[in-house]
Design a protein around this nucleic acid. Structure first.
Lengths: 185, 185
DNA sequence: CTGGCGGGTGGCACCGAGTGCCGCTTAGCG
DNA sequence: CGCTAAGCGGCACTCGGTGCCACCCGCCAG
C-alpha cells in the first residue's frame, strides 16, 4: 500500500473517531508510520487529506464536457456530471464519510469551494463556447457558478438521505438540472 | 473613531499596500495602536477584518425577503437583493477594495463562502415557504445555493468592470435573476 | 570493491495565527 | 477613599505550515 493512500485511510479513520480539529498532524503522521515532515510532502495541508481525490474529477469533467455535442450547455453539463459521478457501490461509504466531514467542518467546506473554482471556470468556458458568447460574460459566469452550486446541493441532499444509493444520486442530478434548464419561476 | 473601525480601516490600507499574507496581525495591531491580544478581541480572525460587514447584510436580507409578497421566490429574492445592495457612491471604493481582496486571496474567498451558508439557508427557507414545499427539498436547497452563486458571479463581474457604478450593479443583478427565472436552456 | 550521485526521508528550528491565563489600569460607585 | 468590574495587553503555549540540511539507500561508473 503506497504511503499516500495509507495516510489517507488512517486519517479518515482518526477524523471519524476523534474529530478533525482534535486530530493533529503529528498523530496522523505517527499513525501512518511516517515523519511529520513527510506527511506534508504528500499533502500540502491537513485539509487536503480529506479533499484529495474530490477534485481529481476536474480533468474528467473537462474531458466529458468536451465529448458532449450540441449547443445546450445545460444538457452538456448534465451528461458530463452523470458520466463523471459514476460510483461503484463499494466506494459509496468512503464518499459518505468524506461528504460528512466536508459538511460539518467549516474549514473543509471552505477549502472545497476554492477547489471548485476551476470547475466553475471550466463550465463557464464550455457554456460560452456553446452559446458563442464571451467567457467573461455575466451569463456564462453565472452559469458556471450556478451549476457547481446546484451540484453541491445535490451532494448535500444525497448525503442527508442515509440510504440513498448511486442511482439516487443520478436522479438528484437530473432533478437539479431540470430546475436549471427550466428556470425557477 | 471606535477601535474596531480604526483597525478595519488601517488593515485594509496595509493589505492593499503590502498584501494580505505579507501583513501580520502584529503589524495590524501596532498600526491600530492596540495590543495583539486586543486585536483578537475585536476580530476572531485576521480574515474577518476584511469580511466583517459583508454579512451584516444577512439580517437585512432576511428582513427584505419577509417584506416581499407573492409566491415567486425568484421575484422576491431579486427585490430583496436590490433593496439590500443599495450603496452610496462614497461606499463604492471601499467595496471594490474588499471585493478585490476576496477575489484574489483564496483564503478569504473560502471564508466568505462559509459566511454565505446562512444566506443560502434563508433563501431556501423562503422559497420553500412560497412554493409550499419542504425546506429540505432538493428544489428549495438548489434554489438557495444557486441564488447565492449567481450573486457572487454578479459581484465578481461588477468588480471586473473598473468603472461600473451602483446602477450597473443593479443591472447585473437583474440580468442574473432573469437567467435564473427563465432557465438556461 | 569503492566512491560519488540522487531521491526519499525526517529531524530541527522557525514563523505566524489563535487561545488561555493573569496582572494591570481605569472608570464608576457606594 | 476604597471596591469592583470591565477592557486591555503581556506572556506563554499549541498547532499548522515551511526552509534547511543531514542521513539513508539504491544505483551506476571507475
Amino acid at each position: 500500500m503506497p504511503v499516500a493512500q495509507r495516510l489517507e485511510h488512517v486519517a479518515l479513520e482518526l477524523f471519524a473517531t476523534q474529530g478533525f480539529d482534535e486530530t493533529t498532524v503529528d498523530e496522523l503522521a505517527a499513525a501512518g508510520g511516517v515523519g511529520r515532515r513527510t506527511f506534508f510532502r504528500y499533502f500540502p495541508t491537513k485539509l487536503d487529506v480529506v479533499l484529495g481525490e474530490l477534485d481529481e474529477g476536474l480533468a474528467g469533467l473537462v474531458l466529458a464536457l468536451g465529448e458532449q455535442p450540441g449547443d445546450d450547455p445545460v444538457a452538456a453539463a448534465r451528461a458530463a456530471f452523470l458520466a463523471v459521478n459514476r460510483y461503484a457501490d463499494v466506494e459509496l461509504p468512503a464518499l459518505r464519510r468524506r461528504l460528512g466531514l466536508i459538511e460539518d467542518v467549516p474549514e473543509l467546506a471552505a477549502r472545497a469551494t476554492v477547489r471548485y473554482r476551476d470547475w466553475e471556470s471550466a463550465l463557464a468556458a464550455d457554456a460560452a463556447r456553446r452559446w458563442d458568447v464571451d467567457a467573461a460574460s455575466l451569463r456564462a459566469q453565472v452559469f458556471g457558478r450556478v451549476v457547481v452550486a446546484a451540484m453541491r446541493a445535490v451532494f448535500s441532499a444525497w448525503h442527508a438521505r442515509p440510504e440513498a444509493d448511486a442511482d439516487a444520486l443520478g436522479a438528484l442530478v437530473d432533478e437539479a438540472f431540470d430546475a436549471l434548464a427550466r428556470g425557477f419561476s
